[in-house]
Each structure stands twice: as C-alpha cells, then as structure tokens.
C-alpha cells in the first residue's frame, strides 16, 4: 500500500467517524451526550487543521532559527585550497 493510499484511508476513516458523531441523533440514537459535545464536534476538523498548521510553522521556524552555520569550516577550507594549489602547481597540474 503506497503512502498516498494510506493517507486517503486515514482521511476517509476519520471523516466517517466524525460524520457519525456529528449526526449522532440519527446514527446512534441510543448514545446520550452532554449538550456541549454538539458544540465541539462540528469544529474538530478545523481545530485539527489549525493545530497541524501551527505545528508545521513552529517546526519549520524552529529549524530555521537553529540552522547551523559553520564559518570555521569555510575558513579552513580556503586555507586548504591555497595549500593544495601550491602543491599541485609544483607537480605540474594546471590550477588557476
């Protein structure tokens, strides 16, 4: 099963469960829920979407702030390039 198929399956299962709860008066007539649930259930998908978005932004933002720099690596590379050029020239390799 490909990743895409698994994603679609998860979505279908979730929305089926959500729709069942949303219309629980008709789908599950024996289920008795406190009235507050009828206010919460309709906004669950939106809440999940916003949560996922916030998580994504926070994740990318944090990764961006902590992005490692390595100026020392560049400095030592430039020195090494000079040493390499000197040695290579002395052996007859054309370097600019």
């Amino acid at each position: 099963m490909s990743r895409a198929v698994r994603f679609v399956l998860a979505f279908v299962l979730f929305f089926a469960a959500w729709a069942t709860l949303l219309f629980h008066n008709r789908t599950l007539p024996d289920l008795v829920l406190p009235p507050v649930f009828d206010k919460i259930i309709p906004v669950i998908p939106l809440w999940l979407l916003v949560t996922f978005g916030s998580y994504s932004l926070a994740n990318i933002g944090w990764a961006l702030v902590t992005f490692g720099d390595c100026p020392d690596a560049q400095a030592s590379l430039l020195k090494e390039i000079q040493a390499a050029k000197m040695d290579l020239r002395s052996r007859g390799v054309s370097v600019d």
Binding site: I60, A63, L64, F67, G68, D69, C70, P71, A73, Q74
Partner: peptide, 17 residues
C-alpha cells in the same frame, strides 16, 4: 547538531527547511 551550512541566505535556508 555538529553539522551546518555556510554561505546560504535566509531564502535558501527556508526553502531547504
């Protein structure tokens, strides 16, 4: 941690992330 990139601007870093 311990790794890193030198010479990328913010746009390049953001794209990569």
């Amino acid at each position: 941690s311990g790794g890193g990139v030198h010479g990328w601007d913010l746009r390049r870093k953001l794209t990569s992330r």
